[in-house]
Amino acid sequence: MEAKIVVTDLTKTFRLSKKQQRIERTTESVKVAVDHLSFEAYQGEIFGLLGPNGAGKTTTLRCISTLIKADSGDIYVDGHGVRNEETEIRKRIGFLTSDLKLEEFFTPNYLFDYFARLHSVDPETAAARKADLFGKFGIDRFAEVKVGELSTGMRQKVQIALALIHDPGVIVFDEPTNGLDILTAKVVTDYLRELRDAGKAIIISTHIFSLVEKICDRVGIIVNGKLKWCKPLADVKASGTDLEQLFFDLVAEESREDSR
């Protein structure tokens, strides 16, 4: 299997303002959000990044999708490096995260055409893909409703459709089922499986165990910016514990190491 995403020794720190220091209750002016992280994601699999709040999942995914720059370490997406081939990566990646927002004034229909043009998708292909994606997620009926007037769930589905506008080979979804009811969540997870079977490399991040157990082939558990475990899901079961217990053990281990 071909490694589509290769993350090596990724480190990302944030400088904290005085205000942020107060909020985070720390006197340190630098926050290490991701700490020497390395992993790979392969074509035709769903890789899950599992971690508690503030573990550094979103930060990792933002670095992969070139929204922010890593302090050190390397990331390659489909053979292209984040350091000097940002545009090539952006062409190949479908990124979903909660802090990428859509303009509320426009309709899903308008935005689809707009982003298709920015991705240089030719109009016919775009129209076919729009029909397909809007049909799959039930967006058709809301195609002419302003994004600002859509429900959270519908908005999330529109986001997903727009992230897939250019039929990317690599899919990076941060908490894809957040805020969705179980019916809608199922539509999304089913579709992710479909995309995997079509040969895409998929990374999702989540703190929901059941989601990982349901759709992921491999899982990386990330605590405090460090990757504590990275193996096929089958290995968890083989080791005699369940994912939840493993997770608690790793968190406990990390907090012992951290306080030392």
């Binding site: 070139t66 929204l67 920015l118």
Partner: peptide, 17 residues
């Protein structure tokens, strides 16, 4: 406004200069 509302970020990950 776009920056504040997070729509700028959506634009910034597009494969355009």
């Amino acid at each position: 406004g776009e920056k504040e509302r997070g729509t700028m970020a959506t634009l910034l990950i597009m494969p355009v200069k």
